[in-house]
Nucleic acid binder design. Structure first.
Length: 303
DNA sequence: GTCCAGGTCGCGC
DNA sequence: GCGCGACATGGA
């Protein structure tokens, strides 16, 4: 087993821990967050088929700006293409290329708003690929968080490729693996319930090249068009589409889901029933940053 | 048993 | 375009 050290340069400011823990993804396999060492681990299957384990943490040398340290555990030495792929995956996961400076300025200006955003925070962890983010998202609909974790864990355990010599560590399953498993397996073994058909369709479409998810990452795509395309995916309704827009760095679209309704009603309307228009008005001043404003809006603490 | 979870689909008006 | 029941599963 080889360990290869890579570094990536984050934007300034950048808070590694805040980014890794900004939402629940870090608790979903094959992500693993270690509180003691502040390390984010994820087994990753490269396009070549090689399965590696990535350990990400903040690196710092005296006096220098912090960097992202990537510890790659691998059986075979990395080819140049594999190294590029790993760097790209890490930059996507941590959103190292996203410019949040305008959001930070708004946070600073809006004195009345004390969002839970530290300098360098506000980046919500993503998977290495959009496919994985969509699968995660489908596993968050109409289910408790404990159930989400269970579904994703079973998917990874049963269909992910093992890290060499340590089968308890597995990569997230490929579209081909999920497609090959088929809806009956997903239903009976993964216990995906009514999501089984959606998941099987999605995986097959991606595996067979009928669905080009990379095209959805095109920044020049207008958000309404992107939303329309996401909604065409079976199982992706208003909540899931808004979550995926967030994943894709589009924060101007708020989804009015049960969590938001509860939060806004409780914090701004004394728990009274609140219209959708009233709820939208709360975050409207944030314009294209509404989702982040909502996400980091501290809940009322009812002592 | 019953209810419902950070919903979504497909139908009927 | 909007309302409504059905949909799997598992935990409270």
């Amino acid at each position: 087993m080889l360990t290869i050290l890579l570094q990536e340069t984050p934007p300034v400011p950048f808070d590694f821990e805040a980014t890794a823990r900004a939402h629940g993804w870090a608790a979903l396999r094959p992500f693993e967050w270690d509180t003691a060492s502040l390390t984010l681990t994820r087994v990753h299957r490269l396009d070549s088929g090689q399965v590696v384990r990535l350990r990400l943490s903040e690196g710092r040398v005296n006096g220098s700006a912090p960097f992202v340290e990537i510890r790659v555990e691998t059986v075979e030495p990395l080819t140049a293409a594999e190294e590029v792929e790993i760097r790209r995956a890490v930059r996507r996961m941590l959103r190292l290329d996203e410019d949040l400076s305008e959001f930070y300025e708004l946070c600073a200006q809006n004195g009345g708003w004390s969002l839970r955003v530290k300098p360098g925070g506000g980046r919500l962890l993503r998977c290495p690929t959009l496919f994985e983010d969509i699968v995660y998202t489908l596993c968050t609909t109409n289910i408790t968080w404990a159930g989400t974790k269970r579904l994703v864990e079973r998917l990874t355990e049963r269909l992910g490729e093992p890290f060499p010599g340590q089968a308890e560590w597995r990569a997230f399953p490929t579209p081909a693996a999920i497609a090959a498993a088929g809806p009956d397996f997903l239903r009976q073994e993964i216990r995906l319930g009514y999501r089984s058909g959606y998941m099987a369709d999605l995986a097959a479409a991606v595996a067979e090249g009928r669905l080009d998810l990379a095209g959805l990452e095109d920044p020049s795509l207008p958000t309404p068009e992107l939303l329309r395309r996401l909604r065409q995916l079976k199982g992706v309704g208003p909540y899931a589409a808004a979550t995926l827009l967030m994943i894709l760095g589009r924060y101007e679209h708020l989804a009015i889901d049960t969590e938001l309704v509860g939060h806004v009603s409780k914090k701004y309307f004394s728990g009274q029933p609140t219209s959708e228009a009233e709820m939208r008005a709360i975050y409207a001043p944030w314009g294209k940053w509404q989702y982040l404003a909502y996400w980091f809006d501290p809940p009322v603490t009812d002592r």
